[in-house]
Design a protein around this nucleic acid. Structure first.
Lengths: 191, 191
DNA sequence: GTCTATACCTGGATAGAC
DNA sequence: GTCTATCCAGGTATAGAC
């Protein structure tokens, strides 16, 4: 995910430690030790501890935003767009569970108090766009946008949390077809 | 919620401060000041800071569990049970937003590392029971239990988070009828 | 049971050599 | 750009009077 420089190693280690223990339970010294760099090197690249977490958060978010934009470009129909988001999410939680946990489970308010809530971050605004277009085109039944958003992606996020909590027997991607099929029924325009 | 003893005042203040700022951003001194009690009084009733949060968490959870049990007793049909949960949740997020945030948004792993994940706590197991009974009785279409759970309550939890994040124009209870109506379509056994 | 005063330590951040 | 050594603030927890 990150390169082998002091900066990259710091971010990689911070990601692992932060998702494992949480922001306030990880000290600079912990990161220093895990990344095998010195305190001085860390403070050369980051002005303080907050900035490490903030950098991590924004870099990961913008990475996801790019993927969302690809989906919007490549998939023309509402259903296919939603399906692509489901697949991307399932893949992400399988391949990078710590990173996924960092994004959706961290209490950002605690260490990024000036950050906007996750639900108005760029990737989530892309989801809103998908649903709004779906309603406008008549693919999705007319309803309140927040209700439609909850129905479209709420169950997906829930399933992801189940996987992160370790209660699922199989990986998330084995459930998403069934999940999407049913979730679509709740929002689809009947004709 | 809690009585006027030093213990009660400590818990009330801790609840407010913890949900506002998060566990590690609130010091014992902050709680002491807000509750208008002394450090000594706090340490007389609680062995350490963790135990304050833990007490709060378990007392609130068992309170919700009781309400869930009432629902299971009073409501015989699957739909009515789910509807009652939706109404209870909407009422809770309206009347006690800080408390709701404390339960569903806190990174418990950070200060309660030995606590089970929320999704296998008592109240959430009651939700699982509701859905399992629904499938067995034929009210809910046969499907994987975790998929069914995600579909039934995922969108509700999402809507609650929207309200907590302050993006909704109205309170959650104005949306839940529409939400439930659609969510039910995704799981209902068709005949 | 409740108070004040304080001991002790963790951990963020800096200084200055190389 | 990276290192080691160190400073110092903030915060948990305790001691001991009342």
């Amino acid at each position: 995910m990150f390169d082998d420089s002091a900066r990259g190693k710091t971010l990689s280690s911070a990601l692992i430690l932060l998702t494992e223990k949480g922001f306030h339970s990880v000290s600079i010294h912990d990161i220093r030790k895990h990344a095998n760099v010195s305190t001085g090197a860390i403070y050369h690249h980051f002005s303080n501890k907050d900035e490490i977490a903030k950098t991590l958060f924004t870099e990961v978010l913008s990475h996801i935003t790019e993927k969302m934009d690809d989906i919007l470009l490549e998939q023309p129909t509402t259903f296919d767009r939603i399906q692509a988001v489901y697949q991307m999410a399932a893949q992400m939680v399988n391949e990078k569970p710590e990173l996924t946990r960092f994004i959706i489970k961290q209490a950002h308010r605690e260490f990024l108090p000036d950050e906007k809530p996750l639900c108005v971050s760029e990737p989530f605004l892309r989801m809103k766009t998908i649903v709004q277009h779906g309603i406008k085109k008549g693919d999705i039944a007319p309803m309140d946008i927040w209700v439609a958003l909850s129905l479209t992606f709420g169950s997906l996020l829930r399933l992801i949390e189940y996987q992160l909590d370790g209660v699922l027997e199989n990986t998330a991607d084995t459930y998403i077809d069934e999940l999407l099929q049913h979730a679509w029924k709740s929002i689809a325009q009947e004709d």
